[in-house]
Simulated assay, not measured.
Amino acid sequence: MKNGELLEQSNKQLAHFEKLVNKDHVLTDEQKKSLKTQKLKVGVDLGTSSIVLTVLDKNSHIIYGDFEYDHAVQDGIVVNYMDSVNILRRLKKKAEENIGVELTTAAGAIPPKTGEKSSKVVANVIEEAGFTCTNVVDEPTAAATFLKIKNGTVVDIGGGTTGITIFKNKKIQTVIDEPTGGFHMTLVLGGRYKIKNEEAEKLKRNKDREEEVYTVIRPVVEKMATIVEKLGSQVEDPVIVVGGATNFTEFTTTFSKVLGRKVYKPLYPQFVTPLGIALCDHAK
């Protein structure tokens, strides 16, 4: 498949999910009846700025999505256990009410190389919220699963970390994780405008001021790209960036300039990893 066509199928799914997520999407009685006989797939993405719940049917078709903003995770690590559990319980209950089916299992994810302890905490949050946790994968691998990557470099930029996974013939060749992400953009904005982090976060998401904001946070993006660039010949094409922190028009332009190669970004890149996590439910 040509690189220009690589994301076409994924973009259709992402556009569909964007129409469903956080819209209190209620299924018809016929749809609910059909789902009662299926083994659904559920993904839980415990992010630095939000917790996302995704639900797929047995054929991996998207049927539901929801999220809540939070600050229960920092640099990829759960720092407020009960907040995470309570948010996830609410998301689970709301999903079950809307789709009419009990959600019994779920998969989770962690930044690369954050260790067994981090994986265990994520699994415990999922279990405490009422699921059986079937799997905990690293975030770039989840993203690659959704994007159906055989060869390439996935750069998953979250709130607190930048995770990079390089794939060749569907096998992981290199995995690294660096402590820089969307929150560091927020810190730079806060310092530049002398405002609190909460205000800086809102400013970062203000599309009307994107050009102004991006001028300030561009050095952070360049630093992220430099992390990839230092991997040299290990980097496999295509390079694909995902994660909410990539939601700037000029993001891939900056990355491409540093790397000296084409960089791709899916539509709604913040939803790539959550959907990939759901695909990993039941899989080991």
Rank of each mutant, 00 (worst) to 15 (best):
N124F: 02
H184R: 08
R261Y: 00
L6A: 06
I172G: 06
A15G: 02
M185I: 07
L91P: 14
V242Y: 06
H16R: 08
K223H: 12
G152P: 09
T254Y: 03
K117S: 12
N22D: 15
G65A: 06
A129D: 07
I227V: 13
I51T: 15
V228K: 14
Q74S: 15
F271I: 02
D177G: 04
K148Q: 14
S233R: 10
F248R: 06
I164D: 04
K150H: 07
K284M: 05
T28S: 15
H71F: 12
F17D: 03
V213D: 04
K19V: 02
K284N: 08
I277L: 04
E222L: 12
R218F: 01
G76R: 08
V101W: 07
M224Y: 00
N3L: 00
T226P: 01
F131V: 03
V220Y: 00
T186S: 13
K2D: 06
D66E: 15
F67H: 11
K23H: 09
D83W: 00
E102C: 03
E128H: 06
R192S: 08
L203V: 07
D138F: 14
I149F: 12
I166F: 15
V258I: 15
L187E: 05
K223A: 14
D138T: 15
V258M: 11
T141R: 06
A123N: 05
V228D: 03
E199N: 14
E97V: 03
H184I: 10
K32T: 09
G158K: 11
G152E: 08
N59E: 15
T165M: 13
E102K: 14
R218M: 09
E222P: 02
Y193W: 12
E139V: 05
G243L: 03
G76E: 02
D45P: 07
G244L: 06
H16A: 10
N80I: 02
G47K: 02
I87Y: 09
G65D: 05
K168Q: 13
D177V: 15
Q74A: 13
T253A: 15
I63D: 12
T186G: 01
Q9G: 04
R90H: 13
E18C: 01
P112L: 11
P179A: 10
